[in-house]
Amino acid sequence: MWTTDSTVVADTLKASGAQDTGWIMHHVLDARELDFTPFGIIHLPEIHLFGLDISITKHVVFMWIAVLLLVLAFIAARKSYRKSLIPRGVANMLEVLIVFVRDEIAKPTIGHGFEKFLPYLLTIFFFILTCNFLGLVPYGSTATSNISVTATLATISFLVIQIGGIMKNGFFGYFKGLIPHGIPMWLLPIMFVVELLGLFTKPFALAIRLFANMTAGHIVIMALLGLIIILRTYFVVPVSIAFALFIFLLEILVALIQAYIFTMLSSLFIGMAYHQEH
């Protein structure tokens, strides 16, 4: 019974996946070309190095666009700061976010010595935020809905956390501090394994959370709009558009929240590794 059921499910999924959800995944997934459909398609160059496929993909291009936007914005901001201490224009907006990351994220979670980690936290916050928003722009694509990107960012966070902890507490002191005080001796080997696993689950959760959140919204929007085509009627258009718009607004919120959460949790883990006594 179970076998047949699951085979049916798998078959339907496979069949529908090939026919109906293909176009949704096409929008969400990474690609080898930039698709500006009515205007044309730009094929990106394929690069192979030491047997590795390091071709430039759509998400890489959008990461670069994010970098470009950030650099331009901060050059403008710096110009404003050179003129006077009072921020103007784009600097005003950026300052709100910078002060937010500094005072609401880094300072309370890391505490003393948070200045060292501020550049990393600010960069990850602005990078994720810009990538998230680029996915909401027409013809845009969300680099943060690629598991490779989020896993890499989480790995960088992991390295920053561990290196921060080791630099503060010393290599052995850091690993000794991982185990809580006042534990029976015979529990030590188990606790060590558990805590070590905990170290790796944190960035894993970071990566999956960001990836899932950024992918889900897009899929839901596509699915809602897809209803129009699937149901083959115009009556569903207002409903689809209204719901898609609602999800889109929600996505704006999610874009902000996920950038905040990634930075917040990174900062929290840094604080835990940095001040182990707490």
Partner: peptide
């Protein structure tokens, strides 16, 4: 799917 090329580019970009 994990794409090693994207990982490399993400590291470099970041």
């Amino acid at each position: 799917d994990v794409n090693p090329g994207v990982i490399l580019w993400t590291v470099v970009t970041f």
